[in-house]
């Protein structure tokens, strides 16, 4: 077993995340990280730039890297050694951020993903939300923008709600109209945001239950992991459901996919090396 450098690249719908690790058996050292917002740019070109910038900051050169693991929408990334799918990587990444976690809830712009894993990151079951988007992060972002609220204000405001207003419509466009109606009825931004958080939380709690995650720590990852209002709503939903789940976040939650990819990359690299020796 020897020391190796491994990197993870996670291309999401709005943002690119890259990380670099030094791995030696069970010893794992995080050397660097970088995010870049896509905003109408070519994601692959941007990835190249962000990746090089990260390596430079970490003092690593491309040739030092043993395994470049991609995840997310990066199946076609030209310089990747191998690709892992996002639920594989988020499970592992969540575990890295919180070794006690036995489930991960990855909340992205369009889909939510629930993953249940064991103590070494092996995925036991998982499920994605699909279909209509009124419960998605994208919807929340649109509404916040409409209400004139910055991303980092959402959580604080939501937690000040005293009488959350439920969004009933299934279709996001009609739900948006619901929200406009609420504003016209004088409902506060706090109560609107909390209402959206609650309906998202209920859906996500349903998702967790359906994969058999009914107790223990749930690590929240993905773009919305830092929304404290959503995390609070999740814990309330869990309490209402009388399940012993505790949703927690981590400042580096957004990197979970990239971290997981990098760590599985190392795992795979060693496995391949062993197989190579055997052959």
């Amino acid at each position: 077993m020897s020391e190796l450098i491994t990197t993870g690249v996670d291309i999401g719908s709005g943002c690119i995340k890259t990380v670099v690790f030094k791995v030696n058996g069970d010893k794992v050292e995080w050397l660097g990280k970088e995010t870049a917002r896509i905003r109408n740019r070519d994601p692959f070109q941007l990835t190249n730039e962000a990746y090089d910038h990260m390596l430079k900051t970490a003092g690593v050169s491309r040739s030092d890297v043993s395994y470049v693991a991609s995840t997310g929408d990066a199946e076609n990334l030209s310089f990747a050694t191998g690709h892992f799918y996002s639920m594989t990587t988020h499970g592992r990444g969540g575990l890295y951020l919180n070794p006690e976690a036995r489930a991960v809830l990855d909340i992205g712009a369009l889909n939510g993903r629930a993953i249940r894993m064991d103590g070494v990151g092996k995925v036991l079951s998982y499920k994605m939300t699909s279909q209509c988007a009124s419960g998605s992060g994208q919807f929340l972002e649109n509404i916040a923008r409409y209400l004139g609220i910055a991303q980092d204000e959402i959580g604080t405001l939501s937690m000040q709600a005293d009488d959350p207003e439920k969004v009933s419509s299934i279709c996001a466009v009609l739900a948006e109209t619901d929200v406009i109606n609420m504003v016209s009825r004088g409902i506060s931004a706090s109560n609107i945001l909390k209402g959206i958080h609650v309906s998202m939380a209920v859906r996500l709690a349903k998702l967790l239950k359906s994969i058999g995650a009914v107790d223990g720590i749930v690590q929240v990852t993905g773009g919305l992991a830092l929304d404290a209002g959503l995390v609070a709503a999740l814990n309330e939903a869990a309490e209402q459901e009388k399940v012993n789940l505790k949703a927690v976040s981590h400042p580096d939650s957004i990197y979970a996919g990239a971290i997981g990819a990098a760590l599985w990359g190392a795992f795979r690299h060693e496995k391949l090396a062993r197989l190579g020796q055997a052959a």
């Binding site: 369009l110 988007a133 994208q138 996001a172 466009v173």
Partner: peptide, 11 residues
């Protein structure tokens, strides 16, 4: 033609 997923389809 789902309005919200239109963005995803576009990307």
């Amino acid at each position: 033609t789902c309005t919200v997923f239109a963005g995803a389809e576009l990307r």
